[in-house]
Design a protein around this nucleic acid. Structure first.
Lengths: 135, 135
DNA sequence: GATTCATCTGAACATATGCTCATCCGTCCG
DNA sequence: CGGACGGATGAGCATATGTTCAGATGAATC
């Protein structure tokens, strides 16, 4: 995962800084290189984040997440008619959401109840509050 | 987009409610059907949300978003060495992020400066605050 | 214990994605 | 104007994704 080294084009960077700063010396370039290296180190990518985003990024799974985030517990047979795919697809989708930590499952007899996790609620809320044209 | 009708399996739903409620009558089934129909109507899927989630769900674009959300403006030549792909791929990725409303662009001479939008910051923050094993 | 029921699982397939390469578009500079 | 430069764009291709179908599982019912 961790890159061993960064192949920064210092010549180009120097031209960039030459335009940005009225007057740019070698030290400015070194400083920017250090800044970029630090930035790269600080912004590691947690696999969980990608998994969650990719899971929510599919229409069926997004809709299921919305339905569950509306509150309460639902079983597959309730959710299946609300999204436009087969029951099998719903099951696949809910598994993906569960693997991503966006949904939790509870068994009761023959039924499996699903509910949204806090993470799902928070993410959907962030989407709601930052939407350009609010619903 | 809007489904004209929902093909709810009322027989199965009746069996479900029979297990949930000690004692279930026709009205309970009708009520649940109405509840589900209302739920389906309330949870429309804004295209913008899917676009944003799918955009952030790719590793390269996620990393770019993180780098930009760390603050300030960056041009392609600064970002390119920090993610492990060609400059062309960075440009493609930033375009996708811009289309999704996650990044904004500013021209200055030959350089194009990119910065994260509020939506990006909020979404990444939601991910940070809900992560199971905090960094 | 055989059957029905709710759900899960894996294979298979069509489609979407993400990259690289080649090329093109503006801008600056001599 | 001609060239170098930063970046954008489109084609092409390997890989990933999402769905359906067929069959498997475990629980309840007869």
């Amino acid at each position: 995962m961790a890159r061993t080294d960064l192949d920064i084009d210092t010549d180009r960077l120097q031209r960039l800084l030459g335009d940005q700063l009225a007057d740019c010396c070698e030290e400015d370039v070194d400083e920017r290189v250090a800044e970029l290296r630090a930035l790269e180190r600080e912004t590691a990518t947690p696999d969980d984040d990608l998994e969650a985003l990719r899971a929510l990024g599919g229409e069926t799974r997004y809709r299921l997440a919305r339905l569950l985030a509306a509150g309460g517990e639902r079983c597959v047979c309730e959710l299946s008619p609300l999204v436009d795919v087969s029951g099998s697809a719903v099951s696949h989708a809910l598994s993906t959401l569960a693997d991503a930590g966006l949904v939790e499952r509870r068994k009761e007899g023959r039924w499996r109840y699903y509910r949204a996790t806090d993470r799902t609620v928070e993410l959907l809320d962030a989407l709601d509050t930052t939407r350009e044209v609010p619903a």
